[in-house]
Design a protein around this nucleic acid. Structure first.
Length: 109
DNA sequence: CAGGTGACTCTTT
DNA sequence: GAAAGAGCCACCT
């Protein structure tokens, strides 16, 4: 069980994750930065893992300059995430990669 | 305070 | 392009 402190922090991250619109995706680093934790990508990952009922499938691991990849390493979980994304209109390659130029979320200032 | 962990990311081999 | 190292943040023992 996470402490109340971590919950407060995670809530901030979840708040950001909830703003990601359908058909768009963001990276852990991006979510962390918007949540006020620059460089805290790993924290965002932990928060998403502990999330319930959030669009966690829209938060991906960055796998290059202009592309991201499904977050989950586990083949079964990765397949689920890929399915959810495709259901929202996000193109996912057979290798589980996504074009950030086309589907990357650009948060409103 | 020191050391270990992780749905991360960047650079170098 | 895969593998390895190092840097990063917050949390837990």
């Amino acid at each position: 069980m996470p402490s109340s402190d971590v919950l407060r922090l995670y809530r901030q991250i979840w708040k950001v994750a909830r703003r990601i619109p359908r058909g768009k995706v963001a990276t852990y680093g991006q979510v962390a930065e918007l949540a006020g934790i620059p460089g805290g990508a790993r924290v965002a990952g932990a928060a998403m893992r502990a999330s319930k009922g959030l669009p966690w499938q829209r938060v991906l691991g960055k796998r290059g300059k202009n592309r991201a990849g499904v977050a989950i390493l586990d083949p079964v979980g990765a397949a689920v995430q890929r399915r959810l994304l495709e259901a929202e209109g996000v193109e996912v390659t057979d290798r589980g990669l996504i074009d950030l130029v086309r589907y990357g979320w650009v948060p409103p200032r």
